[in-house]
Design a protein around this nucleic acid. Structure first.
Lengths: 197, 197
DNA sequence: GTCTATAGCCCGATAGAC
DNA sequence: GTCTATCGGGCTATAGAC
């Protein structure tokens, strides 16, 4: 009888598992308080396997960062299809944030809280990433069209996203205990009221 | 000749120095990435002295947390004196945040970013602390008086503070490169526009 | 009270069997 | 590729001289 060591997890899903579990742990405890042994324990993937996928802990974190941002951007672009007005496009951003916060709170928390500069020397602040650049473009367009009050571009973008993202924050902290979709309409009204002409 | 070991730092200012230096390091690197040796090096106070003031690293962090919140609350109450209307009182909160962000960015960054739950098991989220409770009281009053649109109390408070705090955030990240006082007026207008009746 | 030195622990990363 | 075992290093907290 030829004994084959039992693989508890299929090889092709191990990396995905590590990425998912590590993101959850990073969000919960912070990058520096998550050890490789902790990821091994929570994921069921061994140290050796993890180091065969990722050169080191920082590379793993970098991959999580890129994947998460790319996923957000992809969802954002998909929902933007067919939307024309600036107000609608900004609402798409708001509702995407609310939906992710409810369906995948770990992902949303990751996007809001991880101070990537902590461990990634060349990471941009999240507000310079593609989705947030898009939001600023729409705000700029809105001012050009006259539907948004003339003001500093950043001030306007901050005012809209501040309302939305702070709501997400407080929902993730369970300060708000209703699903964001229930108060989505009010929040979108307030955010728009902050900047409309 | 009786030799007396030179004290590089007067004993009565050592603790204050440790608190100030440690807060700066915690904000810059995160609690878990700041070692006692690093605090020793940056403060010039020895390990033994630090452990004579604080039972352990967590106690030091807890003290920083309490001191920082108490200082904010004291400044807030002082500026509130003589202010009557809800709009004025909320503006006091906004301007206080802007002024601290400019004059003591480490303090403001501490208030916004430290995830105290990381190392303090019984810490409240910062939005349940006294200054933020006051803000919610004023918003409640504003709705009762009819100057703020009727809506969920938390939604209204979030909408106002979201505009203000996100601006502070982006200023601390140097995304905004003008002093907040220069755009204070616009931000306060936007925050109020978000919730006014 | 305050110092230096270090004990004891856990980490990230690697070595070497399979 | 994947495993277990372990090394070197840096950490928190303490011990013991002064």
């Amino acid at each position: 009888m030829v004994a084959v060591k039992k693989r508890r997890i299929a090889p092709n899903v191990k990396m995905a598992r590590v990425l998912r579990v590590a993101r959850e742990l990073f969000v919960e405890k912070g990058y520096y308080n998550v050890s490789i042994p902790a990821i091994v324990k929570a994921s069921g993937v061994s140290t050796g396997a993890i180091y065969s996928y990722f050169a080191n802990k920082e590379t793993l974190a970098r991959r999580i960062h890129e994947d998460t941002l790319a996923e957000f951007q992809q969802m954002f672009l998909q929902r933007l299809e067919g939307k024309e007005g600036v107000q609608d496009k900004l609402q798409v951003f708001a509702e995407l944030c609310f939906d992710i916060a409810e369906s995948d709170p770990v992902m949303m928390e990751y996007m809001l809280y991880m101070k990537h500069a902590e461990f990634m020397t060349d990471a941009s602040p999240i507000c310079f990433t593609e989705p947030f650049k898009l939001v600023r473009q729409y705000v700029e367009l809105g001012m050009a069209e006259g539907v948004i009050r003339q003001q500093d571009l950043y001030v306007a973008a901050i005012s809209y996203t501040g309302v939305i993202l702070r709501a997400v924050e407080l929902r993730l902290w369970c300060v708000i205990n209703r699903p964001l979709q229930e108060i989505s309409e009010d929040l979108v009204i307030n955010a728009w009221a902050a900047i409309k002409a």
